[in-house]
Design a protein around this nucleic acid. Structure first.
Lengths: 140, 140
DNA sequence: TATTGTTATACTCTATAACTATA
DNA sequence: TATAGTTATAGAGTATAACAATA
């Protein structure tokens, strides 16, 4: 029985919960709350609207509006009007935001980075693909 | 290359956290909030004091006191005085509590099984290997 | 009319401080 | 005095509902 879905479901769930539990301790020290940090990280690849961020982070529009305000108030992101649609605005990470992200990232994921470094390239590739699969699976 | 490791570390963490969160969401819709469920799960192995539970769950004593009250109010756990120490009380899971736990566990499994069933065999194999890698990585 | 984003309001979970009872 | 547990109060983070501006 190589296709035991129940066993696999259990293995995946336990593995994910253990990782979550383990890294949570390391993130507790960072200055920015997790949800704020997560949005800041999402902005690293380019400007996004609050709506896009809310969808990506799976929170309500008002929640994202609040989180975005925190980023803007702290000078970590900049709000600018969308030239194509007057209803929208665009959030872009600032230099200060990138710096904060870089600083926090090294501390936050140091544990996982260390462990990943000790793996083979092949194993890291598996984790890379697995992360994409899992993210897709839970986003439905 | 170290940037790749940082990004991968983040992706792995986020994926795992989202799986954990989504699984908890799914169970939360039935009846019990995650933190209540977690305490109920902790009681499955035997009676515990509020203090022990607070330490185990890493929350404050007042928070645990509130959570425990929810369990007792719903008849899922029973509060009884500690015969050896008048200050303490003991929490014990009830039949109803055990039943709720079993129900939630099956729901939680079925959620993951459903999602896994929609994947390709190759993707499932990736998740199988990734689970083993992550479990090993975190257990060190 | 529909949509994008924000503001108003409320609920949940959390914590610190203060209180009661017992050791 | 110190400890176990509860109550009082407040601070985050979240959501739904209502609103303003634009498409």
């Amino acid at each position: 029985m190589s296709e035991d879905l129940t066993t696999l479901a259990y293995e995946v769930r336990i593995a994910c919960q253990r990782v979550s539990r383990r890294v949570r301790y390391d993130t507790a020290t960072s200055s920015l709350p997790p949800h704020v940090l997560s949005v800041l990280f999402a902005l690293r690849t380019g400007a996004k609207t609050p709506g896009e961020l809310a969808d990506a982070e799976r929170v309500s529009a008002p929640s994202m509006s609040k989180t975005v305000s925190v980023l803007v108030d702290r000078g970590l992101a900049e709000r600018s009007p969308d030239p194509d649609d007057g209803r929208r605005c665009l959030l872009e990470i600032t230099k200060e935001g990138s710096a904060a992200l870089a600083e926090v990232a090294s501390e936050r994921d140091s544990f996982m980075v260390q462990r990943l470094a000790s793996l083979s390239k092949a194993d890291r590739e598996i984790l890379r693909r697995a992360s994409a699969i899992l993210t897709e699976v839970v986003s439905k």
